[in-house]
Design a protein around this nucleic acid. Structure first.
Lengths: 111, 111
DNA sequence: ATCTTATATCGCAAATATACGATTAATGTG
DNA sequence: CACATTAATCGTATATTTGCGATATAAGAT
């Protein structure tokens, strides 16, 4: 049975969906907020702030990293995470423009 | 075992995450695109366009509706969907401002 | 009244995501 | 070198998502 039909959509649709997926959990939103509020790379205090176990936080960080939204360098006993603003902005723009272009035409004709 | 820790985050974080979740599948992005490209409410041709079964499309529509991103009126044998631009814009703005505010300070100090 | 058409819903199977504790790995400290 | 600290990874349980076929529903057409 052919599950997993995601590949049948355009690359852009998939990329955008992956970005959204990375943002689709409040823990990951919270992590990004913590990272954003810092002027420097944060070194692991995220676990103390979030109501989640260390392994769970680590997993969320991994997902954000896979999505390209954060970058992290492991340095032995401590690691250093910060937001990848470039990637973030790229997705945010794509996301916004996807609909804003069409909005003006559409908005009046709606039910 | 206490699963489902999502409630332990702020309402705003949860709302934003739910919005992102609604956008986290390429099929739903594609549906929104189809709806946006129309000047009128679309009446069910979405199934013909997407590579998914009718029941699956119906489910995705339901999720978009639950998230408040589209509105749909069922009228017997046909239904009428269109994008809820107001809700969409609200989320999009929240989403953008969440990080843009903090970006200026942060961007230089990053690793 | 029966048939057709369009769509929602139900029931199920498979895949993913979420969470945690235990373990491992890597480095710095006594 | 033994030990503490920090974070990644593994194994596992549970929950959620995704997808489809079958069925139900609702209205128009014949």
């Amino acid at each position: 049975m052919a599950f997993h039909k995601k590949e049948e959509f355009t690359q852009k649709e998939q990329d955008l969906a992956n970005f959204a997926k990375a943002m689709s959990h409040p823990a990951r939103i919270a992590i990004l907020k913590v990272l954003a509020q810092r002027n420097e790379c944060i070194c692991g205090e995220i676990v103390d702030i979030l109501p989640l176990a260390q392994s769970t936080v680590s997993q969320h960080l991994k997902e954000l990293k896979n999505a390209g939204l954060i970058s992290g360098t492991v340095d032995g006993p401590r690691s250093c995470y910060c937001i990848n603003w470039k990637a973030f902005e790229k997705f945010n723009n794509e996301f916004t423009s996807l609909f804003n272009n069409l909005k003006v035409k559409n908005e009046k004709a709606c039910c």
